[in-house]
Design a protein around this nucleic acid. Sequence first.
DNA 1: AGTCGTTATTGAAGCGTTTCAAGAAGGTGA
DNA 2: TCACCTTCTTGAAACGCTTCAATAACGACT
Lengths: 337, 337
Amino acid sequence: MAASIRDVAREAGVSVGTVSNVLNRPEIVAAGTVARVTQAIEQLGFVRNDAARQLRAGRSTSFGLVVLDTRNPFFMDLAHGAQRRAIDDGYTVLMGGSDDSPEREHSILEMFEEHRVAGVLISPVDTDLTQLWRLRHAGIPVVLVDRGSSDRSFSSVSVDDVEGGRIAARHLLELGRRRIAFVGGPIGIKQVSDRLNGARSVVAEVADATLEVRETRALSVLEGRRIAEEILELPADRRPDAVFAANDLLAMGVLQAFVMTGSLRVPEDIALIGYDDIDFASAAVVPITSVRQPAVEIGATAVGLLLSEAQAGADAAREQIEFTPELVVRASTVGGA
Amino acid sequence: MAASIRDVAREAGVSVGTVSNVLNRPEIVAAGTVARVTQAIEQLGFVRNDAARQLRAGRSTSFGLVVLDTRNPFFMDLAHGAQRRAIDDGYTVLMGGSDDSPEREHSILEMFEEHRVAGVLISPVDTDLTQLWRLRHAGIPVVLVDRGSSDRSFSSVSVDDVEGGRIAARHLLELGRRRIAFVGGPIGIKQVSDRLNGARSVVAEVADATLEVRETRALSVLEGRRIAEEILELPADRRPDAVFAANDLLAMGVLQAFVMTGSLRVPEDIALIGYDDIDFASAAVVPITSVRQPAVEIGATAVGLLLSEAQAGADAAREQIEFTPELVVRASTVGGA
DNA sequence: AGTCGTTATTGAAGCGTTTCAAGAAGGTGA
DNA sequence: TCACCTTCTTGAAACGCTTCAATAACGACT
């Protein structure tokens, strides 16, 4: 159906090799020939066949990105950063969302592998990283994003989540809160457990402070709302005076439930802190205090690592880059702010 | 480097044709052979090469989706709907964001064409649709999303934006507002101009009502903030008493600016209505009244059209599906709500 | 006139699949 | 025993591109 390079060659009266050269290294082809070929291309509406190029080249010119949730603005920002950096180097980014499901993550990675992507960026759900080892073994560089590599076996770009958890909890404690509820899950996700552990360590240092964990099934607005409703049903004396949500989506859900019922005031009755500092957090009913992560920068940096690892080959040095999270105080914890 | 089907064949002691059959139609291969081949595949860690498959097949098994802004939750929801529907039929969705730039849109489409995608979903920036005609001519079905095809030459899934504009303006007028500012742009984008025209038609019917247009460079939070600051600088007697933002992102920006400075109360001094009804609109400082579009459903329906058009071939009937927008009233227009 | 360089072009090989006509092997009925 | 199915398996031919060694053409230099 579509015109091939051979059709163009015939039309222009040259060989296929020459057409290919016009396409890829026009400077080595005589000007007149370039013109003739270009015209033939125009005439026939020829468009390169990417599959054939890739087959020949052996590998694709795109990176694969697997995120936990494609609808979370934090990951969208991260993807945006990755894409921008990739385009600069002539690469393309394919994105897939694992939706917190290891099976889905697995099948996305499989797809990427079949596609022979030039590298994979992933924020893994699955704690079992053997599939990632497989990929690397197959010559595909892998970089973890938004998550460190505990044993330093993979390159990674992350934010110190334990410290982030500490920052959040410390902030709440400094405000005099003592009954803190941690809302987040699945706990299996490293980011979540790190943030929890950070908070736990700080709470443990204060004699009369307690930390209660309420695990969610996902990091979504809906789950936040669900947990908030649970909290609302508690008798006043067993109710927490602060909520630390593992991400802003959860925090927004929690906030919505509190505000909608109108029975609990934020922050007077209950303080609320989120995580990620997505754009929407500042625009919430009660602007949400959050722990900021530089999403765009993380994405861009990760692609940078991928590029250098792809360059260096299998024996490339692994590099762990860690950003420091930053507290952004807003009205959901400090009324007047 | 990676094992090919030929390596598997050698390892299992069969021909390449048989391996291919095991992969694609295992039911026609003897059980013992299947086992032997499967084992060899396992052993060698063989993974199909997608490029080769596609080359052979002639076309890819993915759809391309071009949206105006990958960071707009509305489009993310749309993409989500599209993806879900596509996966059910064994397809994959590639997404690109044109960021309101015709050049970028052009290059994304080019990429899709080189990729020989099975179809294209697009919410075009460019008013010139010749590239889309080209695609169709090349045998690639095209479906417009979130935007009708005025001359019915393309299939489309959209929401009646003119009616949406009317709904929004009518709501503001019914609340007694008379000096309405329309915030949106670039006006070249069909969705924007339709919404504006809808609003205009309704405003024209009320003698003492006026509609002032403030064009933005993009449909983003930042641009909303910028315009709101312009409005804040106006003397009180020339200030609008209502803002109709062309989408929720703009509306949120506008709201942020008003609230931050604290000089204008929403809705008392100035009412605000957005468009799209993204999840975050309801969680805003002042929950934002909006015109709802069924994003997920639009995406899913569009992929459905694509599938049937791909099935039917070049002479497929074009189908225009139009959803009706729906007003969602919140506190940004009706104080007590 | 012959040799060498430079510049431009050629054509075949091969990337890893799928498909398909053709063949092999084994079973059944006359 | 032979012919004829049925069931499996085979191997070669594409698919459209890039690469690369080989050639051609043409001056320039000796």
